[in-house]
Structure formats: structure tokens, C-alpha cells
Design a protein around this nucleic acid. Structure first.
Lengths: 211, 211
DNA sequence: GTCTATATGAGGATAGAC
DNA sequence: GTCTATCCTCATATAGAC
């Protein structure tokens, strides 16, 4: 029994080690660029163990996305308004490039690779990313909706949707900038972005009031 | 001579056919996903010919980017202001997803794949894309600069830089949306985007006038 | 559960006849 | 310049001892 216990007790730790390993490689090299041999080497385990814990590469990435998203959710304090939201996500674009080992920061950057690789069309990990992307969008939309007081529901809904679309485009765009190595002060542009969207909301609300 | 001419005369056409082939594959599958065998098959030429015309896959993509960029430049009428610029680039994001064979529309979408694949760090095609990306940014910045009248040079320069950064983020962001398959009305958001940035410029200029 | 050896297949690239 | 056959490398995945 002692022998057997020793062989089995490392299991949870090993799985975690493998996920950390694939994370560090994935941020660096993307999906195609990350090899199972790499993962094994970085995790310190033989490749056989990797396949014992995960069915295949595809499934490994599905669980990586779940893992990252979980950490991201836990580590992200609830935000109150659009400005705070934009600041968090855009500043974090820079962080994701700098601190490659932070799952929470890495999640969205890894995801974008899946958005662009159409070859991965029916890859489960890609679908997982798109699913989380949608979920995220819905949650942002309903958050924003609560911030517009004193306007009819349908107006608030449309406004929230528009701001969510533009906020998403902007945060994705700055992630591209980070990936392309553009020399950008993300804090500064997080503020400018918030200014721009807020003034857009203001003029829309004003327009509505005049009707 | 007749024999020899026949063997040689197809050369220019073949090269072009190969570029068209790699374009159609690249938009679909990205860099890694495009195989030399694919390219040969689609172009209708044997793989040996592909390697006769191009040194290797890397060089093939370098010339593809040059080719696309050239077509893009020729087919793009000079724009007069930010609104027109945003409309052109953002609406074209949708076009790039729809009309995969249009080199002009495809250029920026293919480029983004290179931005994200860090594995391709010293890939010449990636560097070519980043080079054109920088060139594009400079040209947009100087265009915008001419649209701010009656303000000191340094203010206009800063404003133009900021707008170019945000415009780039927005267009990249909407390209991501197109790649991720988000259900987005690009025409509508091109307008909203222009509204947002214009109101930001207005408030900045007003701020300056008060000093 | 861990680890080694290896099967299998795909893709980039070349040789050399025509 | 075109085309075929083939080499070589590398990555996913499995078999099977421990």
C-alpha cells in the first residue's frame, strides 16, 4: 500500500504542474507552437504522464482554458463601471505580455490565437474560448445596463450593447498592439478610451432627452 | 526555340498563380496551416515548381505580403479625414471575412496571424508585416495631423498620435471580432467609432483653448 | 501513476529526369 | 521551367515494463 500510495499521491500535483507548463509554453508559442514534448520537459514529467492525465493535445488546451478562466474569475474583483472595466482589461494587456506565468492575465491573449487560426475551426479548445468570449460579453452587457439610470429599458439595452461591442473591440485591439510589440502606454490609453466612450454615452443620452 | 519558349513563357503567370493560391489558403488557414502541398494543388502546379519560383515557405509569404500590400495601396483611394479612414478599414474587416480572394481586403487579416504567433519571432514574413504596420501608422499619423487647424504643432502632433493609436486598436479589434465570428454590424460601429473619437478630439481642443 | 521506446504520419525541402 | 519520387525532420500518440 505504501508503494502504491507513493505512485498515486503525486497525481493532483502532477496535473497542476502540467497545466502550468502548457500555460508557460502557450503564451510563448501559441497552440501549434506548443509541443507535447515541450510540455513534458517543462513540467519535469515524461511525455507518457502527460498522456495519462490528458487524452490528447486538444483536451489539454480545453482544460488549460478552463483553468485560466477560473483563476481569472477568482482574481478579478467585481467592477462598478465602464471606466474601471476598461482600465482593468487594457492595462492587463501589457501585464499579459510581461508576466507570462499569470494565468488570469494570460487567458485572453492565448484565446486570441484561437480566434485567428481558422484551421482550428472544429478544435474543441477554440470552441471553448469562443464560448467563454460570449459569456463574458453577456456579463459585461448586463453590468453596463445597470449603470444607465432614468432611461427606458430598450434605450439602456441598446446603449449597453453598443458599449460592450466597442469596449471589446478596444481591449482586443490593445491586445493586438501588445502582441505586435507596439510601443504603447496602456494606462494612458485605457483612460482615453474611457473618455471617448463616456462622451459617446453622454451625447446619446442627451439626444434621447431631447426627443 | 519554340520548345524553349513554351517552357518559359508560363513563368510570370505561374508565379502569379502560386501567389493567388497561397493567398486563398492563407486567409483560410494562416501560416502554419498552409502547407506547400496545398499551395501546389490549388495553383495546379507541382510542388517542384513552387520551389523553383520561391526559395522556401518563408520567402513565399514575404512576397505574398508585398503583393497584397501593393494591391491594397493601388485599390485604396486617398482618404481625407478620420471618419472616412475608420469607415474604410472597419467595414473592410467584414469584407475580408466574406471575400477571401481579395488581396487588398485580406492583407490585414493575414497580418494579424503573424502578430500573435510568437513562434515566428524571427520569421521574415512576420517582420515584413510589422514593418508595413509601422509604415501605415506613420502615414495615418501625418494624415491626421493635417486635419487639426489653428493649434500649435506639438498639440496637433500629440493629438494625431493618440488618434492613430486608438484608431489602430479599434480597427484591429474589429478584425478580431470578424475572425471570432462575432455578429457585428461593422458599418454601424465604424460610425460610432468615428463619433467617439471625434468627440474626444473636440473636448481636447476645447481644453487647449481654455489654457 | 510513472517512464522509455517506438510506431505513425505529416510537412518542408531536394534530386534529377524531362 | 516543369514534374516525380523521395529524403529528412519533427510532432502526436501508443505500447508496455515497472
Amino acid at each position: 500500500m505504501t508503494e502504491k500510495r507513493k505512485a498515486h499521491q503525486a497525481s493532483a500535483g502532477s496535473k497542476r504542474a502540467i497545466l502550468e507548463a502548457v500555460l508557460s509554453r502557450a503564451v510563448e508559442a501559441g497552440y501549434e507552437g506548443t509541443t507535447m514534448a515541450d510540455v513534458a520537459r517543462v513540467s519535469g514529467l515524461p511525455i507518457g504522464s502527460v498522456y495519462w492525465h490528458f487524452k490528447n493535445k486538444e483536451q489539454l488546451f480545453v482544460e488549460l482554458l478552463d483553468y485560466c478562466y477560473e483563476v481569472w474569475q477568482e482574481s478579478t474583483a467585481p467592477v462598478r463601471d465602464m471606466r474601471e472595466l476598461l482600465h482593468n482589461t487594457i492595462s492587463r494587456s501589457a501585464a499579459a505580455s510581461a508576466d507570462l506565468a499569470d494565468p488570469a492575465a494570460a487567458f485572453w491573449s492565448i484565446g486570441l490565437v484561437f480566434a485567428f487560426e481558422r484551421r482550428l475551426e472544429d478544435n474543441l479548445a477554440r470552441q471553448r474560448y469562443l464560448e467563454i468570449r460570449r459569456k463574458m460579453f453577456e456579463s459585461v452587457t448586463s453590468l453596463l445596463r445597470t449603470t444607465y439610470d432614468g432611461v427606458p429599458d430598450d434605450v439602456a439595452a441598446e446603449l449597453a450593447h453598443d458599449m460592450a461591442v466597442m469596449g471589446r473591440a478596444l481591449t482586443d485591439g490593445f491586445r493586438v498592439a501588445a502582441a505586435a510589440g507596439d510601443d504603447t502606454d496602456f494606462d494612458r490609453y485605457a483612460s482615453l478610451t474611457a473618455d471617448a466612450l463616456e462622451s459617446l454615452v453622454a451625447s446619446r443620452l442627451k439626444e434621447y432627452a431631447h426627443v
